[in-house]
Amino acid sequence: MSACHNVRMAGGQVSIKDVAERAGVALGTVSNVLNRPEKVAEPTRARVLAAIEQLGFVRNDAARQLKAGKSTSVGFILLDVRNPFFTDVGRGAEQQAAKHGLSVLLANSDDQPDREHAYLDLFEQQRVRGLLVSPLGNVFDRLERLRTHGIVTVLVDRVADGRPFSSVSVDDVAGGHLAVTHLIEQGCRRIAFIGGPVTIRQVADRLFGANKAAAEHPDVELEVLLKDGLTVQHGRAAADAIVQRPPGRRPDGVFCANDLLAVGALQSFTMLNGRIDVPGDIALIGYDDIDFASATVVPLSSIRQPSVLMGRTAIDLLLEQIEAEPGNPVEPRSVVFQPELIVRDSTRRLA
């Protein structure tokens, strides 16, 4: 009898043997009902299912999968679960995984390298079928070791930089360029970029694109205001510092590296300090186009990423690697989506 069929109950453990005795059938018959029900006659199957319900038997799939060496779980390490962009990516991954009988285990690195490494350890110990990672640090060597242990990886919201991993991402350089170009087209000439640490690849790429757009216009200045994180509170703090300046030294346009920063900046400009008209005094644009960007007190312009589609695509890329024939691996693929400008009231100025 395998321990993979045991479950803890109030009176002890109910096993597959208990189910067989209650139903009056052989152990193999119960196993067939659980794994190959089409092989069991309907009356016998009904008797076994009745015994399972009466005893409260629950199969231990985790142990069963461990014994079989084939998990039905996929690990997904997100950068920041508080950011709705990443939860939407996770939702897309779950939707696509479910179509293939897989479940997705979400883990939040919370922008902390130690947590990222701890979750890599955990998912390796759990022998997940595959791994989706939105990496914070340089974990490529670790991911290559995981692959030698049979755990393939797809990078999410990050390109592979020549490493042998499939990836799904958005062209963040193009997104940064798109955001600042839009502000310039609205008449902005003193533009501030509010972002988190440039050690985060997405922030660095969006800033690079912003600088590129500003450099195309000699009369445009781009000021860089970096914070320790990418939260609403960080955006509010950066905007508070702008409000404290004399009007002539304030930017007339602000590009935030994500929508959470933009929400914080909008709160500071229009609600907490109440001195800044958006977009009359300062035009404001974010990045990600999360759901509530359109529901803020002044609806936010943003750079849209196809978050749900990115999650679905990540699972498809992972399955390509998982289902490859032994000795004939599939060449890694990089899928790069183009960002989309979404214009709302926060940048829509009268001509």
Rank of each mutant, 00 (worst) to 15 (best):
V232D: 05
Q233E: 15
G264V: 02
T296N: 08
P218F: 00
P332M: 04
L272E: 11
R275A: 14
E325N: 04
V297F: 12
Q305W: 02
G327I: 07
D259M: 03
L309G: 03
P329H: 08
F292M: 14
L225S: 03
I242S: 04
L300W: 13
D289W: 05
D259Q: 05
A265D: 07
F255D: 04
V330R: 13
R250W: 06
P326M: 10
P306K: 13
P246L: 12
D240I: 02
D289F: 04
E216P: 00
D277Q: 14
E216S: 12
V330N: 08
I285G: 09
D240K: 12
A324Q: 09
P326Q: 13
N328Y: 05
S268W: 04
P246A: 15
A295E: 14
A257D: 01
S301N: 08
V263H: 01
M310N: 07
M271Y: 04
I276G: 03
L260Y: 01
A237R: 14
R245S: 06
G286W: 04
G274S: 07
D277W: 00
A314Y: 07
S302L: 08
A257P: 04
T296K: 07
N273Y: 06
N273V: 00
H234G: 03
Q338P: 00
A239C: 13
R312D: 07
E221H: 06
V308D: 12
R312N: 09
V220T: 06
I322D: 10
Q305I: 04
A238Q: 12
D316A: 14
D291H: 13
A324Y: 08
G253V: 02
S294W: 00
A283P: 09
L266S: 02
H234N: 14
P326Y: 10
V224C: 03
T313D: 08
L230Y: 01
A324M: 10
I303Q: 07
F269W: 07
R312K: 15
L319G: 12
S307V: 03
V263C: 01
I285Q: 10
Q338T: 14
D291S: 14
R249G: 12
N258R: 06
I282R: 05
V330K: 12
L225K: 01
C256K: 06
S334C: 08
R304S: 14
V232N: 06
P279L: 10
S334P: 00
G229Y: 01
P332I: 05
G327P: 11
L272A: 14
